[in-house]
Design a protein around this nucleic acid. Sequence first.
RNA 1: CGGGGUGUAGCGCAGUUUGGUUAGCGCACCUGCUUUGGGAGCAGGGGGCCGGAGGUUCAAAUCCUCUCACCCCGACCA
Length: 481
Amino acid sequence: MNDGEFVKEIASKDEAFSQWYIDVVKKADLADYTMVKGCMVIKPYGYALWENMQQCLDKKIKATGHKNAYFPLFIPESLLTKEAEHVEGFAPEVAWVTHGGEQKLEERLAVRPTSEAIIGSLYSKWVHSWRDLPILINQWANIVRWEKVTRPFLRTTEFLWQEGHTAHKNQQEAEEETLKILLDVYKEYIEKDLAIPVLVGKKSSNEKFAGAVHTYTLEALMGDGKILQAGTSHNLGQNFAKAFDIRFLDENQEEQYAWTTSWGTSTRLVGGIIMVHGDERGLKMPPKVAPVQVVIIPILFDKTKQEVLKKARELETTLSEKFRVELDDRDAYTPGWKFNEWEMKGVPVRLEIGPRDMANSQVVAVRRDKGNKTTIKETELISTLEKWMEDIQNNLYMSAKVKLEENIRFAGQYSEFKEIMEEKLGFVKAYWCGSPKCEDQIKKDTKATIRCLAMEENDEKGKCIYCGKESSSLVYFGRAY
RNA sequence: CGGGGUGUAGCGCAGUUUGGUUAGCGCACCUGCUUUGGGAGCAGGGGGCCGGAGGUUCAAAUCCUCUCACCCCGACCA
């Protein structure tokens, strides 16, 4: 079974990655285009994936003491403009509501591009004493950003996400929160549940969130060598507290501004799953979030049809206690057609049951990550599947991890840097003096930006990849989505 | 927002250069029969304001003007 032998409906991943991506999104039935530019429908199969992702992440968010709430979609202009850097950052992509019915509004309303402003204004009402802190709130919501160039999941005008907003009584607690989200919540979620390995680190000031003191980020390598920002966690310092007047009396009866954080991940990660795990045949779903973990395909012949179907239904019922199972008993399609379709949709394990298998009390099973057929005794089915789900999850993570590591290259010379960006992409690790000028110039030359500053301590000094000035700060560059 | 490209059936396209029968093909869809262990076969059938608006002409998918949408490449962004 060679790659690409069966599925001809999707473009070649190597030759036309972005077409391949669109084909997979459409053919795997994750999403569809609509009448409104940049606004996609997330179809049931794609939405089921998102719901599983939400569940995994929501659990972790709640386990770290956060509670969910819901804030308004509309933000009065006067509120949005309170934090100067914030407005400036988001102004070009804000959608405005100017009328209610036929009546022009006194003040126009922004459709939230993010909720710092509206939430900040409410925290200011809720926080009076150090005893009111911390406030640890998360919301699942839709967001609108008027993008010029859109792509399903990766960049859409409206998208779904989760945004956490917390307020703390001191700087240290806020910083701890920012890091806890980064490492204990997001990194765990993205690596363990989505099987996507990431580099974590701080953003350069060019790349940080508009209005933040600093931003931590998780960066993932995609199948074409470009980099996807998978999540961000911002320490907002007292910037937003000052803009929105979030004040409290501390233990020493002194008035202070609160220290706030915010953090988010979005439906963009669906795109990440596609681009990290997918292959020539389509999607590969990590078992933990796969909408369907096991698909059963009955092999039907006239004489044995009824008994095989009955057996298949029994299997469906038994397995459903442990797994997300789908029985594909559609009459109009041949088994071969179904094999290809479910492979395109990335279902981790396929079971085939036919008369031959029934006679031997077994099923034929195929792992999406391996592709070869094996037979499993019915009595061992559940235990084998349990083990397989874990194996597949690990296997997806490990192969992505190997690819990531192979694609982190150190560059000491700028010529070397440019060559890597021309020919290989991936991450380039290099010294950087800290000057935004060097960063901008590198971007102009190579389209690569600083994805993040390396987290690990570094005692050695090196030379800035661009200007040659001495520096001890190592950073990762890459071409971003 | 600049450069390029494409709009014809649900999808993918041909037809446009050189205007002229009833606009065609593949896939998908519907009906029936035979099939079903890696995208089944045959027979029959349905589906179109040729992106939209104006014009030129006896006659426009085809020529002219304007418009809209989408895609790719560059400048900005979760």
